[in-house]
């Protein structure tokens, strides 16, 4: 499974002509962009958009909304570039914070208009049973995630799916590291509970003892 992940990432990236900028840090690219360098913007777009979109999609569970948020977050990045203060925060940390806030705003608005109903996945392909099974599992996870309180969901997604460290999450959510630990622990337990009823769907029924 890990290999397929890497391939999915690698395929589009390898065709992009920004190999020369692969070793340059996000921050250096951002500063170069702030000085009017379009090549840096391209490299940053390639590098950061998948992260931003993935996180937004997980928080919002809506592809179109997530794309809007991703574009908005990147636009804010472009706008802040000339005033970027070096060494103050990681670019990704800053972006995750922006996306978190944008998503929170959208979720609040959506809740107001009663859009909590979750759409079924559209791309069901019964021919590929494995794909369908995986889709179902991930849907179950997403549904369970959506049932968590905002802060817990943010912490769990950042920690366990985005794979960030607790200090960085603390910076993104602007809370203490202890608070992050507490949020992720509570969130994870709540998830485990919410998913327990769907173990059959999840295919973990006969998972090792």
């Amino acid at each position: 499974m890990d290999l397929s992940v890497r391939l999915r990432y690698a395929e589009p990236v390898m065709t992009m002509p920004f190999d020369a900028l692969n070793d340059v840090s996000d921050e250096a690219l951002l500063i170069a962009f702030g000085n009017g360098d379009a090549a840096s913007a391209r490299a940053l777009t390639m590098r950061l958009t998948p992260k931003v979109l993935g996180y937004a999609a997980r928080m919002l569970r809506d592809r179109a909304e997530a794309e809007d948020v991703a574009q908005e977050a990147m636009l804010r990045l472009w706008k802040i570039a000339p005033d970027w203060r070096q060494g103050e925060a990681k670019v990704t940390t800053w972006l995750y914070r922006v996306v978190t806030n944008l998503c929170t705003d959208r979720l609040r608005k959506a809740r107001g208009t009663g859009l909590d109903e979750i759409a079924e996945p559209e791309d069901e392909r019964p021919s590929q049973e494995a794909v369908l099974m995986q889709r179902q599992r991930l849907d179950a996870l997403e549904t369970a995630l959506a049932s968590l309180p905002d802060r817990q969901r943010e912490a769990v997604v950042l920690r366990h799916i985005e794979g960030l460290g607790n200090p960085e999450i603390a910076e993104i959510l602007e809370i203490s590291v202890e608070a992050v630990e507490s949020l992720t622990a509570r969130g994870k337990r709540a998830l485990a509970k919410a998913l327990a009823s769907q173990r059959k769907i999840l295919g973990f029924e006969d998972d090792g003892s």
Binding site: V5, R8, G54, A57, E67, R137, L138, L141, G163
Partner: peptide, 12 residues
């Protein structure tokens, strides 16, 4: 499940 979700990253 988490790692599966991590794998399924939406390509822009």
């Amino acid at each position: 499940l988490f790692s599966e979700a991590r794998a399924e990253t939406a390509m822009p």
